[in-house]
């Protein structure tokens, strides 16, 4: 570092200045407003609002399902990205474009479409909710006992208007994030690495676990974090499929809207502040984890 490296863009003070001003205008000032408004409440009032049983139940739904959706997307998004990068097949361009669709679709449209699909009378819902009944009929026709048939008839999964429906919606909107963050890394990844591993006698699982995964992990974590963040803030698509039953399927953004509709600005911002804090802590954790994994790879190399 003897000579100052000449950058294409103007120097550090200007760059940092821009960064801070921009960040302040776009993110920090609006977020501060949330906290200032929430500060209208005394600490005990604040606590009463944000720890009300319904609100706490909504945190569990929102954060729990968002984490689950992001985790599921991480697994299947990786598989999708893998097949898009590694194989060529007819219609690949089309599938590649389809991945972005949840980005572009107004979320309300997604919500309505998913609800229509998974409701008890929808294309998928009708098979999911009452497969047991058909199974029981079949069992009886085969000469099975009535008790077993009755037991079988109880099988079925309700998706729309249950937390499971929320999960489906969150998976839908979160998928592109994982695929699009993992894809470029996979494209840069030489097949030679795998060949080398194979020639050194690694099994396929070992190659994946010890060669590929460590390289992919930082990108995968980024995708996970993005999908999670998007899912936590999602309102439009979830609201149609959730059923919105208190203590069961109410998401935190709905609690905020509910408070606003009752002219309770302060209560709404209090819940929003908690949501922001929780999201920030979780994202920070993911970022730390990501930094740690990428350091480990660099060291490994």
């Amino acid at each position: 570092m003897a000579r100052r490296y000449k950058n294409v863009l103007p120097g550090f003070p200007l760059t940092l200045g821009y960064t801070l001003v921009y960040l302040s205008l776009v993110i920090l000032i609006p977020l501060t407003a949330v906290f200032i408004k929430a500060a209208d409440l005394s600490p005990s009032q604040f606590w009463a609002v944000v720890s009300a049983p319904r609100v706490v139940a909504s945190y569990k739904v929102s954060f729990g399902l968002s984490l689950a959706a992001a985790a599921i997307n991480s697994v299947f998004g990786l598989m999708l990205a893998w097949s898009l990068v590694r194989y060529s097949f007819p219609g690949k361009k089309l599938i590649d474009a389809l991945v972005d669709l949840p980005f572009a679709l107004p979320t309300a449209v997604a919500g309505i479409a998913l609800t229509a699909l998974y409701a008890g009378n929808g294309w998928l819902g009708r098979f999911l909710e009452t497969p047991g009944v058909k199974l029981a009929a079949l069992w009886l026709r085969l000469g099975g006992s009535a008790e077993t048939a009755e037991y079988l008839a109880g099988f079925g999964v309700k998706v729309a208007y249950t937390p499971l429906g929320i999960l489906v919606a969150l998976i839908f909107i979160g998928l592109p994030f994982v695929v699009r963050t993992v894809q470029p890394i996979l494209e840069d990844l030489d097949t030679e690495l795998e060949e080398a591993a194979a020639s050194l006698g690694a099994r396929r699982w070992q190659t994946f676990r010890h060669v590929l995964l460590p390289i992919l992990l930082p990108a995968l974590l980024t995708g996970f974090a993005l999908a999670f963040a998007r899912a936590v803030g999602e309102y439009g698509s979830v609201i149609f499929i959730a059923g919105n039953i208190p203590m069961v399927s109410e998401i935190t953004p709905l609690m905020i809207i509910t408070k606003l509709e009752q002219y309770d600005y302060v209560g709404a911002t209090a819940v929003a502040a908690v949501m922001l804090l929780l999201s920030f802590v979780l994202l920070l954790l993911v970022n730390i984890l990501q930094a740690w994994t990428s350091r480990r790879i660099r060291r490994g190399r």
Binding site: T115, A116, A119, G120, N121, G122, A160, Y161, I239, F240, G243, N244, I245, P246, I257
Partner: peptide, 21 residues
Amino acid sequence: NVPVLDGGGRGATTTFTQRDI
């Protein structure tokens, strides 16, 4: 006995008439 709480009147109408709930 309420299985779904829609945000507004029209949403409830849709749930009852279109989703058969």
